[in-house]
Simulated assay, not measured.
Amino acid sequence: MMRKILTVCLGNYCRSPFAQVALTRRYGAAVTVRSAGLIGKWQDQPAHPSMINAARRLGLDLTHHRGRQITVGDLDWADDVLAMDTAVLDTLRAIDGGHTTHKLRLYLPGRDIPDPTGQGEDTFKECAMLIEAGTALHTAGRRQPSG
């Protein structure tokens, strides 16, 4: 059975789009990965230029990404909803109303992936490398423990 994974950050501008392409590369046809943001500030906009560059350095293409705001339908669609930080996770739990709480967890168990927005190129590169390393924690066929 194909896993459906949703990655979520604040704006769907840096972290969650990168996680989407990184997880897709790692698991290929075994998963369908989507990304979304809590806010619509970057709706229909490309990913942050510095994250596009960081992705390129790691052999990933973010140039086709367009930002989107999360919907309740996204939460229903996904088998796993991976929040990039605790604040995003808490907001997802509030939005969720208890219907899909079992699907919600941090992308990295027990650890936030800091938002690189407003930082320099090196911060984006570090963020991308952390997300890329974290892809190994997510298996295509079964749920990982909550974190």
Rank of each mutant, 00 (worst) to 15 (best):
Arg3Ala: 15
Ile5Glu: 13
Ile5His: 01
Leu6Asn: 07
Thr7Asn: 03
Gly11Ile: 09
Asn12Gln: 11
Asn12Thr: 06
Tyr13His: 14
Arg15Asn: 09
Ser16Ile: 04
Pro17Ile: 02
Ala19His: 08
Ala19Phe: 10
Gln20Cys: 05
Gln20Gly: 09
Gln20Asn: 13
Ala22Arg: 04
Arg25Met: 14
Gly28Gln: 05
Gly28Arg: 08
Ala29Glu: 15
Thr32Val: 12
Arg34His: 10
Ala36Trp: 01
Gly37Thr: 05
Ile39Pro: 00
Gly40Asn: 01
Gly40Tyr: 03
Lys41Asp: 13
Lys41Pro: 01
Trp42Asp: 15
Asp44Val: 00
Gln45Cys: 12
Gln45Tyr: 07
Pro46Arg: 06
Ala47Met: 08
Pro49Val: 01
Ser50Lys: 12
Ser50Ile: 04
Ser50Cys: 08
Met51Trp: 05
Ile52Gly: 01
Ile52Asp: 15
Arg56Ala: 15
Arg57Tyr: 06
Leu58Lys: 09
Gly59Trp: 04
Asp61Asn: 12
Leu62Pro: 06
Leu62Asn: 13
Leu62Val: 12
His64Glu: 13
Arg66His: 02
Gly67Thr: 08
Gly67Ile: 04
Gly67Arg: 05
Gly67Ala: 03
Arg68Ile: 08
Gln69Gly: 03
Gln69Thr: 03
Ile70Ser: 05
Ile70Pro: 01
Ile70Ala: 07
Thr71Met: 09
Thr71Tyr: 05
Gly73Pro: 01
Asp74Trp: 08
Leu75Ser: 00
Trp77Asn: 11
Asp80Leu: 09
Val81Lys: 00
Ala83Thr: 06
Met84Lys: 04
Asp85Trp: 00
Ala87Asp: 15
Ala87Trp: 13
Ala87Arg: 11
Val88Cys: 03
Leu89Met: 02
Leu89Val: 01
Leu89His: 04
Asp90Pro: 00
Asp90Cys: 01
Arg93Ile: 11
Arg93Cys: 03
Ala94Trp: 15
Ala94Asn: 03
Ile95Ser: 03
Ile95Val: 08
Asp96Met: 04
Gly97Pro: 00
Gly98Asn: 09
Gly98Trp: 06
Thr100Cys: 10
Thr100Ser: 10
Thr100Trp: 14
Thr101Gln: 14
Thr101Lys: 14
Lys103Thr: 14
Lys103Trp: 12
Lys103Val: 07
Leu104Asn: 11
Leu104Thr: 03
Arg105Leu: 07
Tyr107Met: 15
Tyr107Ala: 07
Leu108Ser: 09
Leu108Thr: 12
Pro109Ser: 08
Pro109Ala: 10
Pro109Trp: 13
Gly110Pro: 04
Gly110Ile: 09
Arg111Trp: 14
Asp112Val: 05
Asp112Pro: 02
Pro114Tyr: 13
Pro114Val: 07
Asp115Thr: 02
Pro116Arg: 07
Thr117Val: 14
Thr117Gly: 11
Gly120Val: 08
Gly120Asp: 15
Glu121Ile: 11
Glu121His: 12
Thr123Pro: 01
Thr123Asp: 14
Ala128Leu: 09
Met129Val: 06
Ile131Met: 08
Ala133Thr: 11
Ala133Gln: 11
Gly134Trp: 00
Thr135Met: 10
Ala136Leu: 03
Leu137Lys: 05
Leu137Cys: 05
Leu137His: 02
Thr139Asn: 11
Ala140Trp: 12
Ala140Thr: 12
Gly141Ile: 02
Arg142Pro: 05
Arg143Asp: 15
Gln144Phe: 03
Pro145Gly: 12
Pro145Cys: 07
Pro145Arg: 14
Ser146Asn: 10
Ser146Val: 10
